[in-house]
Design a protein around this nucleic acid. Sequence first.
DNA 1: CTGAAAGCGCTTACAG
DNA 2: CTGAAAGCGCTTACAG
Lengths: 299, 299
Amino acid sequence: MDAAQRISFTPNVLAQGLLSGQTGTVGLITGELDGRFSIPILMGAEDAFGTGNVSIFLCDARADSIREQFHLRALLSRRVDGLIVVGSKTNPRASLGQNIPVPVVYAYAPSDDARDISVVPDNVQAGFDAAEHLVRSGRKNILHIAGDEDYAASIDRAAGITAALNSHNLGLVGNSPWFGAWTEEWGRLATAQLLASHHAVDAILCGSDQIARGVMDILRESGIDIPAQVAVMGFDNREIFTLASRPPLSSVDMNLESLGKMAAKRLVEAIAGNTVQGIESLPCRVVARESTDGSPLAR
Amino acid sequence: MDAAQRISFTPNVLAQGLLSGQTGTVGLITGELDGRFSIPILMGAEDAFGTGNVSIFLCDARADSIREQFHLRALLSRRVDGLIVVGSKTNPRASLGQNIPVPVVYAYAPSDDARDISVVPDNVQAGFDAAEHLVRSGRKNILHIAGDEDYAASIDRAAGITAALNSHNLGLVGNSPWFGAWTEEWGRLATAQLLASHHAVDAILCGSDQIARGVMDILRESGIDIPAQVAVMGFDNREIFTLASRPPLSSVDMNLESLGKMAAKRLVEAIAGNTVQGIESLPCRVVARESTDGSPLAR
DNA sequence: CTGAAAGCGCTTACAG
DNA sequence: CTGAAAGCGCTTACAG
């Protein structure tokens, strides 16, 4: 021990791994790193693993399944103890298959194979809670300017919103969401359409903070007070948008860092032999700010 | 060979590493992952390594030097072949020291020890080129609404801007930059101050795209045409801001993905024994969009 | 309780 | 050219 101290000896983890069969490493394959969602999930996973002795290999597949296969082979040849696959949409994605020698957890985008382990944010609940928040603050005529209809997140949030409104004997303005794109531009365009229409609206629930940003810009430029005349709310709670808005934007935080932590937890369990098969939906939370405060003008 | 095929044998990379002394892994320690700059650098490095046989361990130190030391120990015990340390500011940072057993490359934030290897974006050139772009498009009265004065990026960009203007016998409006914060709010505030002042301005060069966003909002709401009356330009070229702006915002791309690639390249060289000591500044590029098109009104 | 041997999965150098 | 031995840095099980 004395000698070890003197030469500041540290055991070679590789050699340890060689005979324990465990390397203390996991691979994280992400669909697109520069997307909105991978980073907080990654941070959560890193946090959950990092306090232990697990290190993360990061691979960006750039939304390319060839690259994904390439990285998968590389990670397996490094004998990772498990894999986390992070998608960029909540739509189900192709399973990596059942003959991978280590456990795999799918995060954000669930696997299309029910035997796999998946953790996703609960977009239905997100929509439900957002609509509840607006109704509770006295709003009755709610328009939903949604994102891209091809995204399960759009459909799920809209379903939750509709369910919440129905439970109050309310319905969406125009009877259905206005689907479009995940951009400020779509928010601006849709709001211009709204203002040119006959619809009476006291709240606009937007599919994302970015859409909400475009909506707020047009409302403000049209002299409409937020929230006195129209409340505005987004989804995702990206502070770069919500805090920079005038007024600060209410939103739904999808708790992606918790999602990453849970993915890490489920992977550790699976490595230990305890697999929780199927898709697990994790709760999100409303973050109320000034854009939904105050009460609407009497109509 | 035949038998190997049949059981789909793949060599155990750990065992190979045990005797080659090389593990084919590098550690990437980032200051703050959710910051603006780490991700593209990381993607560039991943790209440069990924085509070879090098895998990246990702560690987020959360801007905490205790965490950084912890991750450093963990990575060294995994016998990484080298390290990339990514900072969140271009201010020099404390060196990890000279007695680390593997090469270290500092990216974005240079080491304060000249014996270390550092790659940084050339913020002086960025400022110079941005000002040149404005002058060439006919602007003469340029205000610089800068970011936080504590950031070397602010100081360097301002120096480049001043040098470019001086070379045309011009100077900044108000004779010096208006330093503030890296936020939309600061952009809005500074623009309101400008409008309440006596300054005649035909271009506003902003310390970041976010600041520019706030500037443009106030200009538009004040009925000032961009770019006909006032050109606006940012730095960083974050498309989430530059493309969503009205009109689309000209900016300077800091080429961070190339920076990441270069960091990877320098690390590979250093591992091979060829060390390029000191700080290397990498070029950035002007991305011209509508916010600086057209010519200013005659005054 | 201490000390030497066997073995994790490889590669390299040497013997046949 | 093929085949067995030695060794990378460890840990585990066994002998003394």
